[in-house]
Design a protein around this nucleic acid. Structure first.
Lengths: 123, 123
DNA sequence: CCGAATCCTGTCTGATACTG
DNA sequence: CAGTATCAGACAGGATTCGG
């Protein structure tokens, strides 16, 4: 957390802001979380869709492509009939997961107080 | 990270997903980060706007109000002329900051590789 | 089975003007 | 100084249809 980064963060095109923005969309973190919690090495498209009931087919596709672009997951196509496509987390993502899980744990610990605050302020 | 939470996360109305979604919008994390890095106890509206050059007045207002609703910041109005309003982080946010900073550090360490991956995949 | 492509809609966001 | 109000454009996300 040096001075250089602190300066960088304040500019619109800051790569750190860009990376966090792409991770923090509606589905990316949840897909990563789901790929990890399943405890399997790989997951297929349909499995992911079953695990995340409210994601549309389009958004799952788009999210997986974006995650692949940034190197968070690998996408392996097996030329079979019917087709089989398997998704797996990369080492990069495994190094990120502790931080995501820390955030989730924090949210779990604080959710009651936060929800309480919302009600109080709105009143 | 118990079983209950894992089940919860998969439902649309999961409070954890809700909390993370509100934190992960375009400006919230950056505003929190800015309030913290300044090293002051409080900051005024104009100071924040100066520190984040590309945020509009409206979005800064909206973001600050949302952060206040969820108890991440306090908003203190001094009935003077001209008016003075000071924003400060709450203890809740100070307990969250290590996780945010961990994410930022991770992004800093991995940004070059991620940007490289994007170019490679797009080709 | 795993998508691509299209269309469409509501929300988010920014620019601008105005106020106590 | 610190907002509010209004409006318009951009954009994310969903529904649907089609294809290998």
């Amino acid at each position: 957390m040096d001075r250089t980064m602190i300066e960088d963060m304040m500019f619109p095109d800051c790569p750190i802001r860009n990376i966090l923005a792409r991770l923090c969309d509606k589905w990316s973190l949840l897909v990563i979380y789901t790929l990890n919690k399943a405890g399997k090495e790989v997951m297929r498209f349909k499995e992911l869709q079953r695990e995340i009931p409210d994601i549309s087919q389009k958004m799952l596709t788009v999210t997986l492509r974006t995650l692949e672009e940034d190197g968070y997951i690998t996408r392996t196509v097996y030329p079979e009939v019917p087709p089989r496509v398997e998704y797996a987390l990369t080492p990069r993502t495994h190094s990120l997961l502790p931080h995501i899980n820390a955030l989730i744990s924090w949210a779990l610990e604080n959710k009651d107080a936060i929800i309480e605050d919302r009600k109080r302020v709105k009143k």
